[in-house]
């Protein structure tokens, strides 16, 4: 279905925060259709939410309703989420990671999401294509045997 304007594995939402509630129902249904194992689905959902929230909160002006497109590709043993936005160029792969805090009182809140995304993905790549930020998040898994 890849390449079609819309399809079961493509979700288009706007950057309004209220739209983010559409992520999980879409992803849960698509993940079930591809028989992705539940432990992987949990990790992918965390990564999906962090990545899309990052776009909604930082790529676009607060309160704006710009488009964000999410695609899921899955084949045996490998799943991939692609998040696209047309905000200013931003490469989260190159962003520096903050060091872990020594104590709770020193803890800084920012950077938690990025740390989770980096640890949960097997591979992350970023490309700027025709004015679009394209973030590709790859996951490896052991297919569940029937």
């Amino acid at each position: 279905m890849t390449g079609l304007a819309s399809g079961p594995d493509i979700l288009r939402i706007t950057s309004a925060l209220s739209e983010l509630s559409r992520l999980y129902p879409w992803f849960a249904e698509a993940a079930a259709r591809h028989s992705l194992p539940s432990a992987l689905v949990q990790k992918m959902h965390v990564v999906l939410e962090e990545s899309v929230m990052n776009v909604a909160m930082h790529a676009y002006a607060p309160g704006s309703q710009e488009e964000i497109t999410i695609r899921l590709h899955a084949q045996t043993g490998m799943a991939e989420l692609v998040v696209e936005d047309h905000g200013p160029a931003f490469d989260p792969v190159a962003a520096p990671e903050k060091p872990r805090a020594e104590s709770l009182l020193d803890a800084e809140i920012g950077g938690l999401g990025l740390r989770l995304v980096r640890r949960f993905c097997k591979d992350i790549s970023y490309a700027r294509v025709d004015g679009t930020n394209q973030l590709t998040l790859r996951f490896a898994y052991e297919p569940e045997t029937a």
Partner: peptide, 20 residues
């Protein structure tokens, strides 16, 4: 059942306040 960084943020902020 599920928690991502926003929920953690809320817990950490509250924890910082308690420990301070």
């Amino acid at each position: 059942e599920f928690m991502a960084s926003l929920g953690l943020r809320s817990i950490v902020l509250s924890g910082k306040s308690i420990m301070s």
